[in-house]
Design a protein around this nucleic acid. Structure first.
Lengths: 217, 217
DNA sequence: CCAGTACCGTACCGTACGGTTCACCGCCCG
DNA sequence: CGGGCGGTGAACCGTACGGTACGGTACTGG
């Protein structure tokens, strides 16, 4: 039975051949540049150095190609923060650890490629509801859950005072990234941020978060 | 001169006739439902009860129609908050005033039509850079500027301790709306929020904001 | 040498859609 | 009465693009 389980985000079993990889990378470039409808399969083919027929043989049609690419790119986003968060949960100096996490976070998320993907998914969330949801769960919620778990541990150790960990995680994350992310969403990819600027946002966010969620000692 | 002419602030230039209004409303519906490329001019025409020829006579082409509609819809968004913010700047009970503003804010922004427009603009910001920027300035930044001004006044009166008003305004606004707004961006229009839920987000945001930006008295 | 597999390049098909043209109609105004 | 004006509806055109067909090339294993 061919397992086309919609609830599953393509678990494992991805024997991605070299050509498939080449096509997927090229297609991602084109999709990010031109959007889903703006992307022409001819152009994807030529960008991949492949023939259209090969693309259709491997991916069936444009929609499936798009879905597979985005879902593939979703995987592993959270890996970026696993380490930093593990360290956060174990540290004693919460303030500086939070600052480190925050800076990593904002720098990782301000990557133009990630932001363009984010915009693309938002743009097509109407046409591909499963995709928007999957991206949200894999790319946004996952990080929040990890943050929440860290905050819970820190609360247990008396270093933080958090009663609703998911809410606190949301506050933390959005305090950090809302300004740059939303600016890019509307004002295009040409808006770049200096590292200092991003650090500033991160530090300010940590300041606010700490004031609200650190025990009054 | 049409008799139904409320809230006519700008002088002349765009005397929107009845048919134009009808076309613009219908077009907005179709654009919001199907996106820019998905929207067919035939469908807009039939939805407006107008002929394609009339549309092209008044608006030139699809792009201009789209731009004009969105820009038109941009105007007046900030009006929603003018009053609440004026009251905020003058009050003594900052905490409850902030809570009122926050609740109004989140309820106003969680309107499905506004969120769909937001998603549409984000989606087309690549194709229409001017549009994305205009929407950002008219719909997002404007509110932040007004907030910042209010925070500045409250700081002068010693009721708040804000050194970077625009930053504080961003923190306030995104603390309030980030959770629902981002959920809808990815998970489609079917996600609805109960008023109680929205109030909860607003109150939690005010709690965090106050902890960070109220003088330690 | 053959069969199978994987791929390329090009030409092709069907259709959808932005935009235009044409014929026609009701209305107000001089 | 007539003629502009603003509107309708439908047919039409050009082009773009998803998807397919077909013929040709290179490599692999037997």
């Amino acid at each position: 039975m061919p397992t086309t389980d919609p609830s599953r985000v393509d678990a494992g079993e991805d024997a991605v051949t070299r050509t498939q990889r080449r096509i997927m990378d090229a297609a991602m470039d084109v999709f990010l540049r031109d959007g889903y409808v703006g992307a022409k399969t001819d152009e994807i083919a030529s960008a991949a150095g492949a023939s259209k027929q090969t693309i259709y043989k491997h991916f069936g049609n444009k929609e499936k190609l798009f879905e597979q690419i985005v879902l593939d790119r979703c995987r592993g986003i959270d890996q970026l923060f696993q380490d930093a968060l593990a360290e956060l949960a174990g540290t004693d100096d919460v303030e500086t650890a939070l600052r480190t996490v925050a800076r990593n976070f904002v720098h990782a998320l301000a990557q133009p490629s990630l932001l363009r993907l984010r915009r693309l998914v938002i743009a097509e969330a109407g046409r591909f509801p499963r995709l928007g949801e999957a991206y949200f769960r894999a790319g946004v919620d996952r990080v929040h859950v990890m943050l929440a778990s860290a905050f819970e541990q820190l609360t247990d150790r008396g270093l933080l005072r958090v009663d609703d960990p998911m809410l606190a995680a949301n506050h933390f994350a959005w305090l950090i990234v809302s300004i740059p992310v939303n600016r890019v969403m509307f004002c295009g990819d040409d808006t770049r941020f200096t590292p200092a600027e991003l650090d500033h946002y991160a530090d300010a966010a940590v300041r606010v978060f700490s004031a609200a969620y650190r025990p009054s000692d």
